[in-house]
Simulated assay, not measured.
Amino acid sequence: MNEEVRDTEWYRKKFLYPNGTLKNKLNITDPTELAQREYRGSAVRALAFLRKNKKITSVEDLKKIHKIMFGWLYNWAGQIRDYELTKGETEFLEYSRIKFGIEEIDEKMKQLASKKELENTDYAFLLDRLNYLHPFREGNGRSSKLFLQAFAANHGQVIDYPRSNKDLITAQNNADINQIADLIKVSSKANKSSK
Rank of each mutant, 00 (worst) to 15 (best):
E4L: 08
E4R: 10
E9W: 11
W10D: 08
W10L: 12
Y11E: 08
R12P: 02
K14G: 04
Y17I: 00
N19C: 09
N19W: 06
G20P: 04
L26V: 06
N27F: 06
I28N: 07
D30C: 05
D30S: 06
T32A: 15
E33I: 13
R37P: 00
E38R: 08
R40M: 14
A43N: 09
V44G: 03
R45G: 02
L47I: 14
A48T: 13
I56F: 03
I56V: 12
T57P: 00
V59R: 04
L62Y: 02
K63N: 09
K64R: 13
K64I: 09
I68G: 00
I68E: 14
M69A: 02
M69R: 08
G71K: 09
L73H: 02
Y74P: 09
N75D: 15
A77F: 00
Q79M: 14
Q79N: 14
R81F: 12
E84L: 06
T86Q: 13
E89N: 13
T90E: 13
F92V: 07
F100V: 15
E103H: 02
K110R: 10
Q111I: 12
A113L: 05
A113K: 12
K115N: 08
K116F: 10
T121K: 12
F125S: 10
F125E: 09
L126K: 09
L126Q: 07
L127C: 03
D128T: 15
E138G: 04
G139N: 01
G141H: 08
G141K: 05
R142Q: 07
K145W: 00
L146S: 01
A152G: 02
G156I: 07
V158D: 03
V158P: 10
I159P: 08
S164A: 15
N165G: 11
N165R: 14
K166D: 15
L168M: 12
A171H: 03
N174T: 10
N174E: 15
I177N: 06
I180D: 05
I180C: 10
I180Q: 09
D182H: 13
K192W: 05
S194L: 14
S194V: 14
S194H: 10
